[in-house]
Amino acid sequence: MTGGGRVAALGADAVGKAFGRAVVLRDVTLRIDAGEAVAVFGPNGAGKSTMLRLFAGLTAPTSGRLRAFGVAGPDPAVRRRVGLVAHQSFLYPDLTARENLRFYARMFGLDDADERVRTWLDRVALAEAAARPVRLFSRGMEQRLALARALIHDPELVILDEPWTGLDAASADWLVGLLRDLRGRGRTLVVATHDFQRGLDVATRALIVHRGRIAWDGPASTADDLDGIYRQVTGAVAA
């Protein structure tokens, strides 16, 4: 799966995922190079979330081969290089914001854990709420803290599932800026979203997933008519 001597951030070779008899993903073959920013679109239930969980190593494929940074299968060294923002926040409701971040920072073995926790609390504008338990947070605050949790170890591969959910307009724009900044620093991004505009704002490449398959794959720049393509791709298959 290497091309030009470079190891792909993600390489999927005929990857399929089934839960018992329910097939969620089939025959997903793609390569995502380091530094690419990929927006993943698709209707609800198309398999986007499952694809992202596979990419993050949270679940294993039932068929095919999936490699992250050239490594197949679970590997702690790979987990260190991956950050995932999922639908659930992965935060302990009875711990404070600071305790949550500190716990994860230490689990990732960061030497400057306290420093990073401070920086990230500032960055997601939760410094003042740092000592409050997450149970008392609004949806938006929890989502911002979830972002900080996923990014605190500065992962090379950042995977985000509907990251704009629950954010107000100002925070949403801030998140676009944050993701573009990550892209500028050479991080690899995979973002699943319903929001075409914001998705294309941060992405260099777009995927459309439909019924468990990759139905369209192309550079984001050629996707000024993504609306039309999306309707054609998902509509055509559905008909």
Partner: peptide, 10 residues
């Protein structure tokens, strides 16, 4: 909140 998955990602 799925904290268990956060733990597994570590």
């Amino acid at each position: 909140n799925g904290a268990w998955y956060g733990l597994l990602l570590c």
